[in-house]
Amino acid sequence: MNKFADKRPAIIFLLFILLLFLLPFVYESRNLLILLTQIFIFSIFAMSYDLLIGFTGIVSFGHAMYFGLGSYSIGIFMKRFEPDMTYFLWAVLTTIALTAIVSFIVGLLTLRLKSHFYAMLTMSLAGLFLVLAEKWRTLTFGNDGFTFRVPELFIDRTNFYLLCLIGMAAVFFGLRRFVNSPLGRVLQAIRENEQRTASLGFQVLHYKIAASVVSGVLAGIAGILYAISLRYVNTSVFSMDITLDALLMTIIGGVGTLAGPIIGAGIIEFAHDWLTGLAKEHWIFERWIIFFGIIYILVVMFFPQGIVGTLRKIAWKRKKKSYPVKSEQKAAG
């Protein structure tokens, strides 16, 4: 039974994926499909962010740089060359290479910089990329960005929806395995107590770099999918807003869990959609970001562990309550 309890979240998740997989075939709403696609993409992005902040305890404010690298890679490949699958694959490889190199270097910097200093540094690095995207006009067309055509396969919204869904599921299960591997366990130890991890004989820096690279590459993939979904890219992909989105989704959903960022992404995107829809009723809803601010403050004050974390805690407490009863019975018998 214990084994089953272990697998239960994965089974629920699989059922959930299956339902979403069937959705486009039974319910035809273009808007919902696009919204869900967006959620899948941001789920990938938020999960990659959670690997850093929730599992390894590295606070980065520059996660948008990997996202933006992915977006621009695909955009430039599709614009400069033919929008077909070969160049799509090239763009993916370029993204992986670029994000791996950048995240490796950024990961190296964790050696000297701790907590908020590191956060500030990553923020300014992301800012650097933003400026680069603005000024390198020949390649990026500056601030206005550019539209591009996408490979035929992705023009169909349903196909692209399924691709993103599969991508999200793959990232979820891949990261699940990753954080539960011996290496992933050490990452969590680093989050808890870095000095102690070092005196157990683990090279902390190597682990931080590993986490940084995996997280960076996944964020790059999310960036690719995002650009394809819009068929347009501009400098906003490097902006602080993107990082803040990931932060918000992770915190609301539950830091240090993988389901958390997915739930967070769902809530944020749905709320965003719903609140902007309400703008017709009252002008305040045009400033929907105000509401996010309020939600964020409330979550941090009352549910610092987010939705998944809080649920888990309740379940854990319940289990603990039933435990002594069992042992008493044993003693009596």
């Binding site: 395995r177 539960n180 011996p182 290496l183 366990r185 157990l200 590993a210």
Partner: peptide, 25 residues
């Protein structure tokens, strides 16, 4: 982390399993 996990990490280090990331712990 749980008490078991605290010690398990030390055992893992002693066994020299440091960078294995593909298998479940």
């Amino acid at each position: 982390l749980t008490v078991l996990e605290n010690v398990r990490l030390a055992v893992q280090s002693q066994a020299g399993i440091r960078y294995q990331m593909l298998f479940h712990y």
